[in-house]
Every structure is written in C-alpha cells, then in structure tokens.
Design a protein around this nucleic acid. Structure first.
Lengths: 220, 220
DNA sequence: GTCTATACTGCGATAGAC
DNA sequence: GTCTATCGCAGTATAGAC
C-alpha cells in the first residue's frame, strides 16, 4: 500500500504559475512546497514527487538545486529557526517589564506560528522520526534563551513566582504550539470552529497570554 | 533513499522472547511494536518490516492477525482513547472541588502519558498526515468532556476566572503533552537532562499542576 | 535551467510449505 | 499459527536531450 492509494491526499493548492528560468524564485518555491510535505510526513515519509507537484517543477529540478532529499530537508529545517529568531530580535524585550516582555514574546511567537504553521509541525516530525538528529544543527537554543531570560528576570524582581525555568519554558511553548499542532484532530471534536481563522487565532492569542501570565505571576 | 539507509534507526529494544503459538500474546506484542513504529512515522511512513522486527514475528504473521496496514493502524489508534478514558473514570472527579478535580485530572493524564508516551505521538502523526481522518472514529471526545466539565464547574462557583473552555482545555492538554512530544528535540538543548526519568516526570507533573492551576484560578 | 525516460531499490502484500 | 520466498508497484536518484 503506497501513500497515494489510501492515505488522505494533500489538499495543498496546486502548482502556482511560475516564472521560468528564475533560479531564486524556483528555489524558494521548492522550499515552500517541501516545508509542507516534510511537516506532514517527515524526512522518510515525504515524497519528492509530491514536493515537485506542489512546486510546479519536475523532480529532476529539485535534485538540480538540492543534492538529495536529506539536504533539502536540512535546508527546510534551517529556515524557521532563523526566521523566528529574527522576529524576536525586533522586539524591545529588555526595555520592558518581565510581564510585558513575556506577553510580547508570546504574542510574537503565536503570530509567527500562525503565519508559518508547518514549521512547528516539522519540529515534531523531526523529534519523532529522527530524534532531533537534524534539529541539533538548526540553532533553536536562541529563541529559548530569550524566554528563559525573561522568566529569570521576573523571578528576580518578584513579579513571577518561583518556577523551574526550563520546565516552565517548555510549558509556555506547549501552550503556544498545541493549538496549531492539534488543529486537524480537534476540528473533528468541534466541527463548527475554524482554527485557522484570524479572529480565532486572535482569541487563542489572548487566551494564551492570559493563561500564561496568570500561570507564572506571583499571587498578589 | 530508503529510510533504513540514512534515517536514524530505531533503538527499540530488540525482539523479546516470545511464547510460540500464543495468539493473544502475539497480537498484543504486534500492537505494542506497531504503536512505536506508527508514533514515529505515521501511517504511510511506518514499515511493516520494522513492526515485525520489533515484535519478533514475521511480516506474514501481522497480515494473518490484521488484514492490512490500515486496519492495524486503526487498531493501534483505538487503544489509547479507551485506556485514558478508563483511567479517568477511576477518578472521583465529581466529588471534588473544581480545583482538586483539575489537579487530579492533570496528574492522571500526565501519569498516563508517561506510561504510554507513544500514544500522544501517534495523535500528532494522525493530525499531520491524515488530518484526523482516523482520529474521528477513536472516541476522544470523552476525555475532553471531563476537562470541559471541570472548567465550567469552576467558573460557575467562582474559583476559576472566566475563560473560553475549549481554548483553555487545549492549552491544558498542550502543557501535559508538550513535555513528552518535544523531548527528543529539547534533549539536545539541555543534554544533561533525562526527561524520561521518573523523578523528572514528577517534577514536570508538579510544575504543570502549579502552572495550570495558577493559570485558571481567579485572582484572590 | 528544465524536461522526459529509465535504472535500481524498498516495501506492501500474498502464495504455499510445514 | 508460523515460516520462506516472491510478486509488483511505488519511490529515489540519474542520464541525457533541448
């Protein structure tokens, strides 16, 4: 049984019109299509044919730009770490109170995830399939470090209750992520909801911020 | 490129000694091995050969007990929903205050996940690959309903602040899950930690309970 | 830079002996 | 009930034309 025969086919929008002979655009389009395919199926499960179909080029083209499947995967895995870090660096976290900084970081992280939902899914696939082997190289320490720093600053000035910074950072990341990674399951439990809807994402953002801030703040 | 050549090989403990000609035991062993393989690779990515190797029987045996890969997958997906629900039903939730009931439910859910870490991973694979197509049938409404009920009870009697029950339930589930599902990635960021260690799981449990309760309780 | 055609391998599934 | 052997297709990767 191949995937194509029984598994749910991808509903990714079919080939977008492409500029012929535009190397940079072609490369970016390959990465975009690969991002969804790897997010859904991981390194071993992804099909080069499916990536080609989503891009509108042939398989041979992908092998021309990226040596092989593994290197394409690594290129895809690299992007989100850089992008999220760049987004975080824009935020004036050090100038804000720990509370405000945490709120802004959570808002930024969720906004980023809403714009790039496949990036979080890839990280999970990477953990499941490859046990973080490729994750290591992609530089995810940095975003985490910002979160840890805020938590420690808040504990130091007494606005946050005493917590284990690592475990709490993981819990916070879980709140930000789970809404998106569980979407395709939960939609069946609450069929009238559209979790990708921007208004819904905004409600999630507000609930998440309220939940997380209440979760770490010292009782007054 | 096949998975076996480049991807990280499974480190699942090799074939356990089996009782020959014990149908029920054989069937259960197949389900156990299949649970890990499907958790790591999902329906399409899982390899029947790998499941056979993890079980200690041949591929043909699996086809004898389960018609095909898809039906084996559905059987594996069914188990956790039933088991978690049974565990929850043991808890005297209705006799407790919303606060105590939530604490007990979270503790029970995390204990269950620690004992069956692959079950949560399968749910994610199911969402990613199949968009919840098979999830639907497995009856996950019930565990969620218990959580929703507690939240609503707590809001009604004023011990919890006003929250969106669905979004908050998802956030709570995220806190319980993320520790386990992200383990294989995060271990590279904090290499000296052993997240599967029981003492570590207990710390996670306590941090999660404190975080979640603080997150939903009304400020006093 | 982009395509078509194809070599070679991995894997789901089955046949048939014991 | 359990095994070995094998069929047939699906999927990675490449060769070579334009």
């Amino acid at each position: 049984m191949g995937r194509s025969s029984k598994a749910t086919p991808s509903t990714r929008s079919p080939k977008k019109p492409r500029q012929a002979r535009d190397p940079e655009a072609t490369k970016a389009q390959i990465l975009n299509a690969a991002e969804e395919e790897f997010a859904r199926h991981g390194l071993s499960g992804a099909r080069m044919e499916a990536i080609a179909a989503g891009t509108g080029v042939t398989k041979a083209m992908i092998y021309y730009y990226f040596e092989n499947k593994e290197q394409l995967y690594q290129a895809v895995l690299q992007r989100p770490a850089n992008e999220l870090l760049d987004a975080i660096k824009q935020l004036p976290l050090d100038d804000l109170s720990p509370e405000k900084a945490l709120e802004m970081l959570v808002r930024g992280a969720i906004a980023h995830e809403a714009a790039h939902p496949y990036q979080q899914m890839i990280l999970f696939q990477e953990a499941s399939q490859n046990r973080g082997k490729y994750f290591e190289k992609a530089g995810w320490q940095a975003p985490f470090a910002y979160l840890l720093k805020i938590l420690e600053r808040g504990m130091a000035d007494g606005t946050f209750r005493p917590v284990d910074p690592w475990l709490t950072a993981i819990n916070i990341a879980g709140v930000c992520n789970f809404y998106f990674t569980t979407y395709d399951n939960v939609k069946h439990l609450a069929p009238d909801w559209d979790f990708r809807n921007p208004a819904m994402v905004e409600r999630h953002t507000q609930e998440a911020i309220a939940f997380i801030l209440a979760g770490v703040k010292r009782q007054t």
